[in-house]
Design a protein around this nucleic acid. Structure first.
Lengths: 221, 221
DNA sequence: ATTAAATTTTAGATTAATCTAAAAAAATAT
DNA sequence: ATATTTTTTTAGATTAATCTAAAATTTAAT
């Protein structure tokens, strides 16, 4: 029904429109599929004919309900296989992406459901990303506080639980912005303060008081 | 390196030349790949250029050492995945072939070795077929066809050499399951069909055609 | 040993996914 | 508001795997 290639396009369009919550540009898709914009134009026309996307020339693209359902099935398989590779086969979480990119296209509903059961119906993959259920429903995201993150983990800042101006201004000055990457380098036991490295490679010191108020989500590194 | 399609050709050439131990004909390959002879000719030329087969126009084809190594890797993966599907996910042995046909092309040495270990280094798949090791070495075969068994002998069923769902379902209906005991009671000379008694003491008639595809191991009675 | 039949290969098309180069449309800047 | 730049699309080719129809080769039969 949907080819390997079509599935990859749908998955990428899903991810891009989840980020921006608006039409996805041809160039953005080209970048992630590692193809040229011309190839993307062709494929969007084709996906549109198949009712998998809504696409108006020059106006970007969005998934239809059908297209989203397909994308979510692929993402579900990808994340379940990642759990399998890490939990059952002992891979590190940074070694599984490429293999899961292949496994996500294996076509068998029965297989997916049995795998899910075998893994104990996991809600999140080894990178902390939520696994959609059979119906494409994502589990509630469970943000963590930066203060709960263990040394070595890589996270993205997704929010704050303290909204005072002084706090937010302090964060801005530190370079701690929404969406920035944080790697926990050291935990200082005596006061639970943290040494972290940000996405721009700068090193920072974060007090436990501040860490408690930063909401983060783990990411692949 | 080798595409999905090329791997399928190599696998099929391997199986055909294992059966006949001689050059494999274009038509025989066409039948199993479900393509036309013309397509096979094209592909054989291509595989020959890649040093995967020895091919002389009109003279049939054989695998080179390289081609055989690739074929054995695919077969190894196919059979390991079948073990996984049956042993870990609880599939019946007649449901796993199609899924394994897809999984056998997943490309990751590391994955195969870890899967092998996870499954406890199995020597045979759920159909009783031997699983080649990392180096392509097959474990010693320890079975015969039921058609070779003499009257009065008692055997245990250890596998099948035909994997179609219809055949496997027919066996299930007869009560011929993996591990069941079979005593050959009578050989009907005119058509080589057999009268047998099963472990549950029921009597059955088995055609030569079916007997040829049942792998058995003799037991003391 | 010819002829007839079967098998296999070549020639020329087709489909999916991609590319480069050029044209068209939209966004941005003066 | 017009010109420039950027983005996107079209046009025309390319590659892998397939097809049909016709030609070439081998095998089998008289």
């Amino acid at each position: 029904m949907t080819s390997f290639t079509e599935e990859n396009y749908l998955k990428i369009i899903y991810k891009l429109s989840a980020e921006t919550d608006s039409e996805v540009s041809t160039n953005a898709v080209a970048e992630l599929t590692l193809t040229k914009a011309a190839s993307v134009s062709d494929m969007l026309r084709k996906l549109s004919e198949k009712q998998l996307v809504n696409y108006q020339k020059y106006q970007g693209v969005r998934l239809t309900e059908l297209g989203e359902a397909v994308a979510l099935k692929v993402i579900r398989k990808h994340r379940l296989w990642e759990v399998f590779l890490v939990e059952k086969l002992g891979f590190n979480w940074d070694e599984v992406h490429e293999i899961a990119e292949q496994l996500e296209h294996i076509d068998s509903e029965e297989l997916v459901e049995r795998l899910d059961e075998f893994l104990g119906f996991p809600k999140f993959d080894p990178h902390g990303d939520p696994i959609p259920d059979t119906f494409g429903i994502m589990p509630e995201l469970r943000y963590q506080n930066l203060s709960e993150i263990t040394v070595g983990q890589s996270v993205v800042m997704v929010g704050v639980s303290e909204h005072s101006a002084t706090f937010l201004q302090y964060l801005a000055k530190m370079g701690l912005t929404l969406g920035c990457h944080i790697v926990v380098k050291e935990l200082n036991d005596f006061d639970k303060s943290l040494n972290v490295k940000l996405g721009d490679l700068s090193n920072h010191f974060i007090s436990h008081e501040v860490a408690k108020n930063l909401l983060v989500k783990s990411v692949k590194n």
